[in-house]
Amino acid sequence: MSPQLLVCAPLGLEARALRAALGEKYVRRTGCGPRRSARSAAALTGADFDVLVIAGLAGGIGAEVRSGDVIVADELRGQRGTVRCPSAPSLVAELRRAGFPVHCGPIATTDHIVHGAQRAELAGTGALAVDMESAVLAEAAGSRPLGVVRVVVDTARQPLLRPGTPSRALAALARLHAIGPCLPRWGRTVSPEIRSAASKELY
């Protein structure tokens, strides 16, 4: 039997883009920011699913990252520690087979939108992108496989508060919709060995 996939999308626009690709039953809107994410993670801890994906938009902070690029987290860095994502390589492979520009590396989760000097500071740590939910929502996965996919909207060269942001956001949402069909395909490839290794490591 195929593993049951749950896709968490923080924002309504993100959830709609993913539901259009996957259908209503796979996608749960979880709310913007760490506080709503914590409530959603607590509610989902005992839910009936086998594989968790967190998907949405993000700010790019790595020097090589461009608007529209897809970031797959190999770890999530939040206020409560670091969450490892051992099954990231197989998710990267699935997305690259589909032709998407994918980077794999750390995603930082903060409690506010990051600008200017703080963006550069996070980039200096090796993080590729920043969001306000992923490290918190990841707690819902428990020992189940976890995938985190974010599409970049803004970067240091193209900051959020600029006239071109709405068009970049629409393009990023279109890409998020396009990667939707890759997620259940990846979920079906997650082996029992990866599943047992997917427990979170906090330090």
Rank of each mutant, 00 (worst) to 15 (best):
M1K: 14
M1H: 11
S2T: 15
P3T: 09
V7M: 04
V7K: 02
L11V: 11
E14I: 01
A15P: 03
A15W: 07
L22C: 05
G23S: 13
R28L: 10
S37V: 14
A38R: 15
R39L: 15
S40A: 15
A41L: 12
A41N: 09
T45F: 11
G46W: 13
V53D: 10
E75M: 12
R77V: 15
R77E: 07
T82L: 12
T82S: 09
R84I: 09
P86N: 04
V92K: 01
E94I: 10
E94G: 04
L95F: 01
P101S: 12
V102D: 03
C104D: 08
G105F: 00
D111I: 11
H112F: 12
V114Q: 04
G116I: 00
Q118N: 01
Q118L: 07
A120G: 00
E121V: 11
L122T: 02
G124H: 00
D131S: 05
E133G: 12
V136R: 10
V136N: 07
R144W: 06
L146E: 07
R150W: 01
R150P: 01
V152T: 09
V153N: 00
T155W: 00
A156F: 04
Q158H: 13
L160Q: 11
P163V: 05
P166Y: 12
S167W: 15
A169R: 15
A171L: 11
L173H: 05
A178H: 01
P181Q: 13
P184E: 14
R195C: 15
S199K: 04
